[in-house]
Computed example of a mutant assay.
Amino acid sequence: MDTALERVIAHLSRARSVLFVTGAGISAESGIPTYRGIGGLYNDEHTEEGIPIEVALSGSMFRRRPELTWHHIHRIEQACRGASFNRAHEVLALLEGCFEHCWVLTQNVDGFHKAAGSKHVIDIHGDIHDLRCTRCSFSERVADYSQLAPCPSCPRCGAVLRPEVVLFEELLPPSKVALMERALFRGFDVVFSIGTSSLFPYINGPVLEAAARGLPTVEINPGRTQLSDVVDVRLEMGAVAAFEALWAARDRWKHG
């Protein structure tokens, strides 16, 4: 068996608590394009309006021209429509029963972790399937956007609806930040970074802090990132292959 995989198995065999930090790479194997936004879609960095995608998908643009922001949100959702969680998401859900304390912190807005059965999920950027009114308390969950208007309005008060996701320039939801901080305060024996370039401090922070404390850290990513020289084990493979291998070896590390 691969030496790096053996080291991960050894870490898991001694762990009682595990944090999995996930990014776009884990959903790429479900057919979700990995953003420069939600990716492949905007590799040229600019939209057809001639503005950067980060501007089109910003909070300030949504306030000024919600129809423009919604246009690109619709394109993102359509690119993801019909996709579903993959084996990596399924194994992560199963892992909750194998450790005393097991959480997923994800940047992804596709909702795949919860759909696969994970209960302890901090979707720090929200979920594209959850909509809320910008004026009143109306909210709803939609399976897809196929029946939504180009710029949907609230059926209760007529104000513009928006997806419950963090747009560029916006702050993270305080309730989810608090949940993340409580989980991190309790601590983890092993921290994984999976399929993420780890550009945000709240995404790379748990890995960096664990490494600074001498705790085991693992990166699962076919490419190199800014964490690649920090973690003590790297699995240079996709998330599905990695978790299938770890699950196949579960008799060697499973606690639950």
Results as ranks from 00 to 15, higher is better:
207 V>N: 02
146 S>F: 09
243 F>P: 09
101 H>S: 14
189 D>M: 06
161 L>N: 00
131 L>D: 07
198 S>C: 15
167 L>K: 02
167 L>G: 04
193 S>Q: 14
173 P>Y: 07
53 I>S: 04
156 R>T: 15
214 G>F: 01
114 K>W: 03
161 L>C: 08
83 A>R: 14
176 K>L: 15
139 S>Y: 03
97 G>Y: 12
114 K>P: 00
217 T>V: 12
226 Q>Y: 03
245 A>H: 07
238 G>R: 04
142 V>S: 02
244 E>W: 09
166 V>A: 06
256 G>P: 00
176 K>I: 14
48 E>D: 10
252 R>N: 00
60 S>A: 06
190 V>Q: 04
83 A>S: 13
204 N>T: 13
81 R>V: 12
112 F>K: 08
97 G>E: 10
60 S>F: 02
109 V>D: 03
139 S>D: 05
80 C>W: 03
240 V>S: 05
139 S>W: 02
89 H>K: 07
15 A>S: 12
29 E>V: 15
247 W>D: 05
180 M>L: 12
39 G>E: 10
131 L>V: 11
144 D>H: 09
60 S>K: 07
187 G>N: 06
254 K>P: 00
7 R>A: 14
249 A>M: 04
182 R>S: 04
16 R>C: 02
229 D>W: 04
80 C>P: 00
64 R>C: 05
42 Y>D: 05
143 A>G: 11
165 V>T: 14
242 A>D: 13
212 A>R: 06
63 R>Y: 05
147 Q>T: 15
48 E>P: 00
158 G>H: 03
43 N>T: 15
168 F>T: 14
188 F>C: 10
59 G>Y: 00
256 G>Q: 03
217 T>W: 03
225 T>R: 05
91 V>Q: 13
28 A>L: 10
138 F>P: 13
6 E>K: 08
145 Y>P: 00
224 R>P: 01
161 L>T: 06
